[in-house]
Nucleic acid binder design. Structure first.
Lengths: 346, 346
DNA sequence: GCGTAGAATGACAGCGCTGTCATCGGCGCT
DNA sequence: AGCGCCGATGACAGCGCTGTCATTCTACGC
């Protein structure tokens, strides 16, 4: 099993182990010719640093943790892929960490997690990134982190941040529906305590206001980020005496539920009712009709956040960044048909 | 930051560090009263072992790798969840490792991966688990692994294995369609080089044979495990002079493509054409109509494989296990309607 | 040619744990 | 009483790397 170690390389290159370490870690103050010799030895021996030893010895393990608390499988995986891409490129390891963002001991759980493996830092995704008290505790423990937040850029933020302006995107989707001529637009909320959900509702309300369309309480239905709630919520909306001509689901899974509810009621989408989602998950592309939605590249966002984190760990100062989801118009939205022509099938 | 170490606990419990180590690792030969004292100290100090140190010092890192090469995001995530469940329960770490199963240096890549982090072992999922030559090399490197294989249990297998009998499940789905009265059943293949895909095709053929229905070459269409191939393949089938009355997609994503193709052609599912998938992914539940499919609990299967692996690492002998996917009948399949009554909408 | 700053390199300890082997004590046996 | 044996415990080295600090080398100015 004899894995090649620093010492082996050092012997071959006729330098000390420390110098090899310097080369491996790209430190300055190694003469180019020495560096060459070391690199050659590394290649000849096919040396790979032992990450455990490096982590144990150094001040941190060159590994970051991705912290999430989200029921949405697809979302988690995109985030993981983004984080993995950044980590692979920068030679860091990645640990996934599900958690309960509402737990009172959140900060301490995360501290233990970091200490056990000497993690270099954490990427905090929503809704974990919204627990401000926990963030302060983490900062007090000197744990580097970058958070991803559903909000507009805010210069007063004291913690490094990648912003995703969900309000803006929800505004765009609602505007799109309004411009198509819809005046009664249903809104299916997700995650009650989830800040992103509130932002999306805000975008919806703001758009209605700006277009001079009154907000109707009965068109906003609570629920969670899951299919069944989308189905039930849409059913409720469609059963109203005056049903909406369009429904905006707070994420794609909710919209999928709404789509199924409409179709099971014999309505044709988008002719009888328009449906829009939020997320650009595979479902939105694979359903029929494909969903109009907001493209949110969770992978790219998290990759960026990961790079920011690693840069900070390396001592750099990094500027916050904002990513705005963009409107993707697909087949599930169209102008409303006049009520008289609405028809039931089957 | 001062994390609590073994020595701290040892000092408090008035024993040596080694004894604390024994208690932590559940070794015998510690007097119960000593053990109690140590446990109390651990609790009082809230001690957590440093995984890096343990891994560096011990013969392995109490961490396993989950190796995959699969384009299906949902599948990967379920597997990850299963592995995480087992690892959490048994106090192991988990590293995810995507790879190219067709790379000639596969075994060496994996060896490097294992050595870098001193991994305890690997769980190999399909199609990586099918590369027999690589498996032999891994075994020669003394790397423990458990593989998950799409096949019927085979006592001649020399490597530990969790079997998933895809042929059987595909047989069940095809039988279901045949029993409904379908005689022309289209089959959309996935991953050309993927053994599981061949097994599913086999199940399809076997069922046809057993029901005395001739196999029609033109009803079997090649493609990959992706939506677009399902869409295109189904289009091709539906455009035949004598189109099939049912289509069986090799996984849910392919079936989703077929569903979209049928609906975009104005066909009503399942009245005009039945569609079945394979996998029981969320899509199959969230589409309209929901898909008849084969339930494959990737999470449970991988959790089991992970437990097997960890048991083996601990020196135990473990028996191979087989999981058979089960047929899940939903709304996308129904008896064929007579051809004359078939109608186009829109 | 000499002194010296600053760059290049090396020696060494130690990160927190486990494997190995030595040690200690108590018990049962002759 | 003396012996051996085994269970319980501890001392110590070392896993492979990095941080710190000491040492050596180089180049430049006078």
């Amino acid at each position: 099993m004899g894995a090649v170690t620093l010492d082996d390389v050092a012997g071959r290159a006729r330098v000390s182990a420390k110098t090899v370490s310097r080369v491996v870690n790209g430190e300055r103050s190694v003469r180019p010719e020495t560096r060459q010799r070391v690199l050659r030895a590394i290649e000849q021996l096919d040396y790979r640093p032992n990450l455990l030893a490096r982590g144990l010895s150094g001040s941190h393990a060159y590994t970051i943790g991705l912290v999430y608390d989200n029921p949405n499988a697809y979302y988690i995986l995109s985030m993981q892929q983004g984080a993995l891409a950044a980590c692979d490129a920068l030679n860091f390891g990645l640990q996934m960490r599900p958690c309960n963002s509402r737990s009172p001991g959140l900060a301490e759980e995360l501290r233990d997690f970091v200490q056990r493996s000497r993690l270099s830092g954490l990427v905090l995704t929503t809704p974990v990134s919204e627990r401000v008290a926990a963030l302060h505790r983490l900062a007090a423990y000197h744990i580097p982190f970058v958070r991803i937040l559903s909000a507009a850029r805010d210069p007063r933020d004291e913690f490094p941040c990648v912003y995703v302006d969900d309000r803006d995107a929800a505004y765009a989707i609602t505007s799109h529906l309004l411009q198509l001529g819809h005046a009664r637009i249903g809104f299916l909320r997700g995650g009650k305590h989830h800040h992103a959900s509130a932002e999306r509702l805000k975008g919806y309300k703001d758009a209605l206001r700006d277009y001079g369309v009154p907000l109707r309480k009965e068109l906003v239905v609570d629920g969670d980020y899951v299919f069944d709630d989308g189905f039930r919520g849409a059913r409720r909306l469609l059963d109203l005496a005056e049903p909406p001509t369009a429904i905006f689901g707070c994420n794609d899974e909710i919209a999928a539920g709404a789509l199924a509810a409409a179709q099971s009621a014999g309505l044709q989408v988008p002719y009888d009712v328009s449906i829009a989602g939020f997320e650009d998950s595979p479902f939105s592309r694979h359903s029929w009709p494909p969903l109009t939605t907001a493209r949110q590249r969770a992978d790219i966002i998290v990759e960026h956040a990961t790079r920011m984190l690693i840069a900070r760990i390396g001592g750099g100062e990094v500027d916050n960044e904002a990513f705005n989801p963009e409107l993707v118009v697909r087949g599930s939205t169209a102008p409303p048909r006049s009520k008289s022509r609405r028809r039931k099938r089957r």
